[in-house]
Design a protein around this nucleic acid. Sequence first.
DNA 1: GACTTTATATAGACCAGTCGTTATAATAAT
DNA 2: ATTATTATAACGACTGGTCTATATAAAGTC
Lengths: 186, 186
Amino acid sequence: MSNAREQILQTTCALLEKQGYHGTGLNEIIKESGSPKGSLYYYFPEGKEQITAEAVLQSGGQTAERIRQGLTESSNAAKAVSDFILNIAEHVERSGFAAGSPLTAVAMETATTSTRINAACHEAYQMLKSAFHDKLIECGYSKTKADELATFIVSAIEGGIILSRTSHTADPLRLVAKQLKVLLAS
Amino acid sequence: MSNAREQILQTTCALLEKQGYHGTGLNEIIKESGSPKGSLYYYFPEGKEQITAEAVLQSGGQTAERIRQGLTESSNAAKAVSDFILNIAEHVERSGFAAGSPLTAVAMETATTSTRINAACHEAYQMLKSAFHDKLIECGYSKTKADELATFIVSAIEGGIILSRTSHTADPLRLVAKQLKVLLAS
DNA sequence: GACTTTATATAGACCAGTCGTTATAATAAT
DNA sequence: ATTATTATAACGACTGGTCTATATAAAGTC
């Protein structure tokens, strides 16, 4: 409904992605989103924690959706997962290594310092896991096997994003794509 | 030689691990390390960036050393890597999920906002990769294969740490250990 | 050996600026 | 007229960084 609210969340997402929770200031959010401070506290009366938690959850939902869509395009799980990761690799590259998972930094910064944000990150990761999990089930994997693989896939992707952004090359992500493809094909 | 300098770096490491770069303040570092601000700027005249870069590099060197030591205890690469990861899992668990890789958060926060810290993170990750790489070479892998596997191993571990800290269970890390063991055994 | 000079290191007050947050006033929409 | 939203100003707390004062120790000079 409200444009300003959505704009704030979207801007927050981008900033969290680039510089994490503590590195992102409310002043920066309002400047970049164009919304004034009054509006920010009108829509998010509980302040920074609330904005962050909602941004994280929204981003998790959107990413999970993208995973599901990408996976429907191919009936082959190995190729589907690999393609999805190659997509991320391009995205990270195109952003000049400023983007790639708004969750990672936030999750690490707040794992033991904000129960609310931690819960949001946990739920967001569960959404990603579920998206992969469901596709694997669909491809005939057992429930426990699908669960294990989904966690492993998310782990490898997260790590790949970190290494890619740090090294300023998408190669680590592409390598993760390749390795997971082999693993899932076997 | 100097005790205070070392103490500052060690404290910084622990705080970076727990709450990242922007979440860690100089006042917190001096309070926790016992050194006054005068000493901090005496040993690190270039301020927070310098302290962080040095802490990251030191931590990378120490972790790489631990990897090499752990790997010499077993001639079997698969078991050696798995055991190392299980060690991390215990460490993360014991810390109440506050510890586990001082690099991750810092690397993501500063990938495009501080060339100095980014360079330090990059070098630290290279050290970890090299440690695994050398062991894989020793076990008969080809140079390119060893390089690919080393990157993949580091990726999976980093991701496992994130998921473990976020979910407050060491299970993801243990799962990563198991999967990599299978992968390396084949 | 006594005395001065130079480095090493500790200690903390202080600065301008920013943080997240609150309060209040003005405006727009219904 | 009532509510929804925007617009600022101000708050106290804290930020990274600078500055000066002091203590300790090493080295140089006679």
